[in-house]
Amino acid sequence: MQMKPLGRTGIMVSDLCLGTMTFGTQTSEADAHRQMEMALDAGINFVDAAEMYPVNPVSKETIGRTEEILGNWNAANAARRGDYILATKHSGEGLSFVRDGAPITGKTIPEAIEGSLKRLQTECIDLYQFHWPNRGSYMFRQNWDFAPTGHNTDDVLGNMQECLEALQAQVDKGNIRAFGLSNESAWGTAQWVRLAEKMGAPRVASIQNEYSLLCRLFDTDMAELCVHEDVGLMAFSPLGTGLLTGKYQGGAVPDGSRMSLSPELGGRKSDRVFDAVAAYLDVAARHSLDPTHMALAWCRTRPFMISAIFGATTVEQLEHVLAGADLTLSDEVLAELDAAHKAHPMPY
């Protein structure tokens, strides 16, 4: 397992991160605890959660359950809490089940952190992230119609300053160590960096955006910003919600799979995406590679990447991912993957 710096924090994290968004719905607490043990034993020291998890589906009845499951593991394995970097997120604006959909502000930040700390049964959150920008986002297929208008720039920047002050107070209390973003843009990330440096406040260390062979929006402005500013990418959906495994090809919908619960896969399902997946599966077949291992190994080659966040619904899926953790792709494979991308750009 390779270790990467978490921005300029001095914290080192594994370049594979265990995602937990199914803990409490598709993944039982017993299996979730087994996954924690397996991941740490394999050298993964990075675990990502969110106060709104679990998903599939998101519901009022289960909000916070993922953090509670992790908290129960922390309580039962207190000696191992220092073995891993724990990340979680403030839900932000719009999710009515959490603080009535209140935006991220100086008032909601301490409330959200105290709630997460209690559920996680820990004294400190290593990486605290903002799940969504208050002003909206290009992520989750909103890039097709999101317009960066309708917000007063001074108000946006004023809110950022207020939030940075609140984060600094949480650092001072020992409640959090580092700060990260999610579903952010190049402009937004640049402002967070600029204001933090101006104020002497927590500098953004990471950004969690979607990234995979099927979704390469990060490859332009975001890539340049993150390389030069030491804000690394934590890639979510590096397997394209399972599409890149090939399990949905030919109209297949395995029982209990994400597609069985969310038929459109959050807008990712299209005629073009299956052709794109076929091209990547062909590359894997030509080089006798497992497609899951290939897709994750490719993500880990990117110069702006901190860690690829994968989710394993079952222990067996985690075992499969871990079996390919040491894969290195040849220059020939990388060139063929780029060629497939050029032939099938933006398939959803």
Rank of each mutant, 00 (worst) to 15 (best):
S257N: 06
L225G: 08
A276R: 04
E224V: 14
M234S: 12
A223F: 00
D221N: 13
L225E: 05
D255G: 12
R268F: 12
S257V: 11
G250N: 07
E264Q: 15
R258M: 11
L225F: 15
L289I: 08
E210L: 02
L217Y: 15
L233R: 09
G267C: 07
A276L: 00
T245N: 00
E229W: 00
Y211Q: 05
S212A: 10
D271H: 01
V231M: 09
S257Y: 09
V277S: 08
V231C: 12
L214F: 10
L244E: 02
M294Q: 09
L281E: 06
S260G: 11
H293P: 01
S206Y: 04
L261N: 06
A235S: 15
S212E: 00
L213S: 03
P291V: 13
A252I: 07
A235E: 00
R258I: 13
C226P: 01
V253L: 07
I207A: 13
G242K: 02
R272D: 02
G250W: 02
T245W: 03
Q249F: 05
F236I: 10
Q208H: 11
A252S: 11
R216E: 06
D255R: 13
G232L: 11
T292S: 12
T220F: 07
E210T: 08
H293N: 02
S262I: 15
F218N: 11
D271V: 13
G246F: 02
H293D: 02
P238M: 09
T220S: 13
F218D: 11
L233C: 09
L244T: 08
P254A: 14
A235I: 12
V273T: 06
A285G: 02
S206I: 01
W298Q: 02
R258S: 08
T292K: 06
M222V: 11
D275R: 06
G250E: 03
V277H: 12
M294I: 09
A279E: 01
L244S: 10
D271T: 08
L225M: 14
V283Q: 01
Y248E: 03
L265R: 10
L244F: 05
E264M: 15
R258D: 01
G267L: 08
G267T: 02
D221F: 08
R272S: 11
L214E: 05
S212K: 03
S288C: 07
E210G: 07
R258Y: 06
W298K: 04
L244P: 03
A297C: 02
Q208N: 14
V231L: 13
V273P: 01
T241N: 10
E229C: 12
D282F: 05
V227T: 13
Y248K: 04
L289F: 04
V227W: 03
S288T: 09
Y248Q: 05
P291H: 06
R272T: 07
P238Q: 00
L214T: 12
Y280H: 14
G267K: 08
G256Y: 06
A285M: 04
S257Q: 11
P263Q: 09
T220H: 12
S288H: 14
R258P: 03
V227N: 09
S262H: 12
H228D: 14
S206F: 03
V277W: 07
